[in-house]
Nucleic acid binder design. Sequence first.
RNA 1: GAUCCCGUAGCUCAGGUGGUAGAGCAUCUGACUUUUAAUCAGAGGGUCGCAGGUUCGAGUCCUGCCGGGAUCACCA
Length: 515
Amino acid sequence: MSHELTEQEERRREERQHLEDAGIQTYAYGWDVTSHAREILESFDDELHQPGDDGPAQEPFSVSIAGRIMSKRVMGKAAFFHLQDSSGSIQVYVRRDDLPEGFYSQVFKRLLDIGDIVGVKGFVFRTRMGEVSVHTEELELLTKSLRPLPVVKEQDGQLFNEVTDKEFRYRRRYVDLIVNPQVRDVFKTRARMISAIRRFLDERGYVEVETPALQPVYGGALARPFTTHHNALDMRLYLRIADELYLKRLIVGGFDGVYEIAKNFRNEGLSRYHNPEFTMLEIYVAYKDYVWMMELFEEMIEDIVTELHGTTEICVGGEQISFKRPWKRLPLLEAIKFYTGHDVRGKSRDELVSISESLGLEIDDTMGAGKLIDVIFGEFVEPKLIQPVFITDYPVELSPLAKRHREIEELVERFEVICNGKELCNAFSELNDPHDQRSRFEDQARLQEGGDKETMQIDEDFIRSLEYGMPPTAGLGMGVDRLAMLMTDSESIRDVILFPLLRPEAGGDEESTSS
RNA sequence: GAUCCCGUAGCUCAGGUGGUAGAGCAUCUGACUUUUAAUCAGAGGGUCGCAGGUUCGAGUCCUGCCGGGAUCACCA
């Protein structure tokens, strides 16, 4: 990664040399941080802390802070800069005569730049302009920055020269995080959300487990996998597309409830809703069915929303969404009837084709009856479902791992929660009849022979585990990134993934790629 | 994979119908001991994403490629 240095980069390398020649460390070993910007601003008290005209404050407010210089305003023998730390930013006041001889004019003014990381010791005061600031008594360079940082200015909450270029922000997320501090809040919210999920499930006694990401047989979802190879065993392996079949083996093994928050990998296109690696929560609970799972899920989400936002109602994409329990439940076929006027219940494939055509859908010969229903739903119903709603009971051929509906032959006991027009989770009463499971897998194999690339492989070991006997089980999978998008009102999945996949930068190495 | 939009200085952007590039901030020099998008005076910085083509002449028009975004397809 070499590039021709710009004028400013040359300049900073020279500054670093000058600093080192003067015996000043450019990469220090630490700094004793006692305070953070936000907490200083919050706890400053004019009565107690503000120094008088001719003497110290009643109770001097001494702090030691560290962070990055984000602006610098030199006015002769005094200067101001803003220092940004993990909590926010605070103004620092520097006077020539407070610092060691020569430091101000030779080092601070000439050799310290926006982007450098410094430590400051001093006392807090309020300037004539009314801004709470730190009056420097000691200043030390902690890390020299060799590349110029984009300079974002702000007045009255209005930003100037804000870095908005998506490509720049995703490729250099570290810079994005520096110059767009609200981005850090998104990822803090995501972290708190995941903690809340764990707490909710741990409290109920479910065991967090880890299952293989490298799998000899992929399964648990309909998707194309990434393929890799293990050298020592000379063996083809797939990166997991789901952890479902392993988690159910654990239910066979006697756990009452297990869950995993795992990265899944799917070799598919990218979009604002899809990243090839993404995070999924899967939960399996023994002796329960999908009706019970609906209650668990809505309770969990209501809990999380309340914890993150202090309310069950949040604004997403300009829509007010309420996660207050209970959520509406609507069978899939009724939803289609309500939104399209067509009753597709018990219709043959030919009848469904003509309904689809009358609705203006493009269809092809490979689509079965279940697929057609799925397409109609995705096109005419899903986008209209803004408030969280359970859509229940799906065609059997779309759900090779779900148990048949106890009353309706052609359906399975499955639900999805749709929220803001997108699927949030997928759950079913798990299929635990090994014979039925084998025939569902065989149906999938036939689809594969028909050219469908997103089918399930027959997992013999999984069937074997079912033959030992899996108790009735409810299972659920949820896109963690999708929930993070809702919780942070983000319109792209790339805004809730720190390092989303992008093509390599132009001018990169010529690494060979096989496809 | 398809369609549309975008790619000009470190950053944000301007560059009617083609005449080899501009602004603000950042950077550099100087002034200024409570400023705040600090200010004032001066200076430097660009193979206009890459490669071809049309033209006397291309940032500008055409083609291809690279990268990004949005929509679609597939899915979570």
